[in-house]
């Protein structure tokens, strides 16, 4: 590194301004990288020694703040949210790319609403969920309320990635399918959608990442009960909410570190998977 800088310095001896620009760019990149490395290393170093088998006990007590129930609830809520968001998101994207005519007013209206939805802060979603799903529809603090709230939250993400993936399928594929006598529906399901799978999948994985990391939208919709949910109508906390709850109590610093490690590992895995899917399956849209 120093040799590289020395060579640069020799080249820029008479051009200090360029050298300064070069240096500031490198410095910024270094800061970004170091910040992330520091956060991850700090959490891992402090957390890994605190990971104990008791933390993966099947029930939560005040003596042993087991994270396993929360982990299982996270899985439930993720599946449930995807169950709502993925069909709707893909259906909407199919309508916008395959059925709506170019220049259709609906396309721009849906685009604007999707943009609005993706800008709304998660706490506003949480509040809306508690007003609409919990109170108005009477679903109570439950997995279902939480999942419905989250599915609205990740809907624009899934819609946008699917739309991009569908648009990147060349028109000649569709024409070929029509030419062979297939109808619209058949063309969509057996020609266009399979080609778009990698793009859709990486969108879904990004959505999973958002669900796993979410806390503000869940506290007032899914609640904070620390046991494994027995039905979709029982209140349950996800891992993020669990971590927030035990970090607030101040008694469980070690357990919080350990929970942070588990959460971080899950997020890193999801991230790696999304990159892998985008790369290996030949997806064209790697940056979500």
């Amino acid at each position: 590194m120093t040799g590289y800088l020395k060579r640069k310095w020799r080249a820029y001896r008479h051009d200090p301004k360029s050298f300064f620009l070069f240096l500031s760019v490198c410095l910024a990149a270094l800061i970004t990288m170091l910040a992330l490395v520091f956060i991850i290393a700090y959490i891992l170093i402090k957390g890994i020694p605190n990971i104990t088998p008791e933390l993966f006990d099947s029930s939560y007590t005040t003596e042993n703040v087991s994270l396993l129930p929360a982990l299982i609830n996270t899985l439930f809520i993720t599946l449930l949210s995807l169950l709502f968001a993925v069909p709707v998101g893909i259906g909407a994207a199919i309508y916008l790319t395959e059925y709506a005519r170019r220049g259709n007013k609906l396309i721009s209206v849906v685009g604007i609403t999707a943009e609005t939805l993706s800008g709304i802060p998660s706490i506003v979603y949480g509040l809306f969920g508690s007003l609409f799903f919990v109170k108005y529809l009477g679903l109570g603090l439950s997995l279902l309320s939480g999942a419905l709230t989250l599915s609205i939250m990740i809907l624009p993400l899934i819609m946008r990635t699917t739309e991009e993936a569908l648009r990147s399928v060349p028109d000649s594929y569709r024409e070929g399918s029509f030419g062979l006598g297939a109808g619209k529906l058949r063309t969509v399901f057996s020609i266009v959608l399979p080609c778009a799978v990698p793009g859709i999948l990486s969108g879904v994985i990004l959505g999973i990442g958002r669900i796993v990391g979410e806390s503000a939208a869940l506290i007032f919709t899914a609640g904070t009960v620390a046991e494994i949910a027995t039905s979709i109508f029982s209140s349950a906390r996800t891992l993020s909410v669990h971590m927030y709850s035990i970090s607030g109590e101040g008694l469980y610093l070690k357990q919080t570190y350990a929970t942070a490690v588990v959460l971080l590992v899950v997020v890193i895995l999801i991230n790696g998977l999304s990159g892998f899917v985008a790369k290996k399956l030949g997806g064209r849209n790697t940056d979500g």
């Binding site: 970004t32 910040a35 992330l36 956060i39 959490i43 990442g209 796993v212 990391g213 979410e214 806390s215 503000a216 993020s240 971590m243 927030y244 970090s247 942070a260 959460l263 971080l264 997020v267 890193i268 999801i270 991230n271 990159g275 940056d287």
Partner: peptide, 11 residues
């Protein structure tokens, strides 16, 4: 950078 975007806000 991608990972930074994915880290949950509680963390």
């Amino acid at each position: 950078v991608n990972l930074m975007a994915g880290i949950p806000s509680v963390v």
